[in-house]
Write a protein that binds this DNA or RNA. Structure first.
Lengths: 186, 186
DNA sequence: GACAGAAAACCGTCCAGACGGTATGTTTTC
DNA sequence: GAAAACATACCGTCTGGACGGTTTTCTGTC
């Protein structure tokens, strides 16, 4: 008879904790280490408890995907709202979101998303939808070659950062940021 | 008593076949599907046979990594050799290698590398070494902001291509290529 | 070139542990 | 008291890998 059984119940907190643990595991020990046993244990919940929130592993991964993309949507929307210039607005929000994530939680989140996308083919389809939606919404303002190039560069920097090969120093990083923002306006 | 036991032995061919199958599986069904059973079966070898060439799974992944990076090294060296201009030479080779891989095998290979790197933390360390080595070798000729930016953009395009969200059309792609090559010379 | 070993290149079987998932019970919350 | 939020126990399958056997290939010797 464990204590967990008797403690107060906070379903939403448990859910968040589970997702957080799954994300951390995926980043630190690779996506293969994200097992129901490992996640539930590290989250302080029994496997049964975990499976109550996410009926199977796929739904756990989907939950992770939803969590991250919703965060990303929120951040992008906020940044776009305070940007007076329409042209390249989405691109600038994109740059800002990945270049200077608010708090380091967000940065971690985007990384998790990348790892999940690449290792789980099923999520690639969902990502494609997300991507297409944003692309269609911002066609006209963010379809220029320069804007596209800027977003590609952000993705590349992001990937290198994730792999730990980002050798760019702080000063150069700042210059690059300026440069990318300029490109979004061309 | 199977036929495979009696057929002619081609250790090198088997080795290559195993690596090719592992690569294909990883790309099409995700890295989680790369199991010793699946690989050996798809490669037409028994698991025992597979484990003769690669004593354990880690060494199989390492073998895949070696195979791809050696290919990549070869391609980069070839491209650099025919480039008369020192400045940005490595960056141009990098761009060319990923933008217009010779045959589609190479393109597949680079993709496999990306997937493997992200899903297998152990390989990230090895990738860091590879990356550092090339960076040090070409410091002085390829350290400019523009060259770095160009390489980042290539990585980004690459990632989007891998995820299937590459919406850029052929004409724009050609323009982008030109643009990146120009950037390598600044 | 023949021939005996030695080594390499396989195959088939078995196993312990991990994994995803089910079924059922218990406690808390509504 | 019904439903949600857990826990515990258990099961079938898969996975990495060990092991011993069999066939082919290589290597040195005469």
């Amino acid at each position: 008879m464990s204590k967990a059984h008797h403690r107060k119940k906070h379903p939403e907190a448990v859910r968040r904790q589970v997702l957080a643990v799954a994300a951390r595991l995926s980043l630190e020990k690779g996506p293969a280490s994200v097992t129901l046993d490992a996640v539930s244990q590290a989250a302080g919940v029994s496997k049964g408890g975990l499976l109550h929130h996410f009926p199977n592993k796929l739904s756990l991964l989907d939950g992770l995907f939803d969590d991250v993309t919703q965060s990303l949507d929120r951040v992008l929307a906020e940044r776009m709202k305070v940007d007076p210039e329409p042209k390249g607005r989405f691109t600038r929000a994109y740059i800002a979101a990945f270049f200077q994530p608010e708090g380091l939680e967000d940065g971690e989140r985007w990384k998790v998303l990348t790892v999940a996308l690449i290792s789980e083919p099923h999520l690639r389809d969902r990502w494609r939808e997300w991507f297409d939606r944003h692309l269609v919404e911002n066609v006209g303002t963010d379809s220029s070659l320069d804007a596209t190039l800027a977003r590609y560069a952000v993705d590349g920097l992001w990937l290198d950062d994730l792999l730990g090969v980002s050798v760019i120093d702080t000063a150069m990083r700042a210059t690059l940021l300026k440069r990318l923002l300029d490109m979004s306006r061309l």
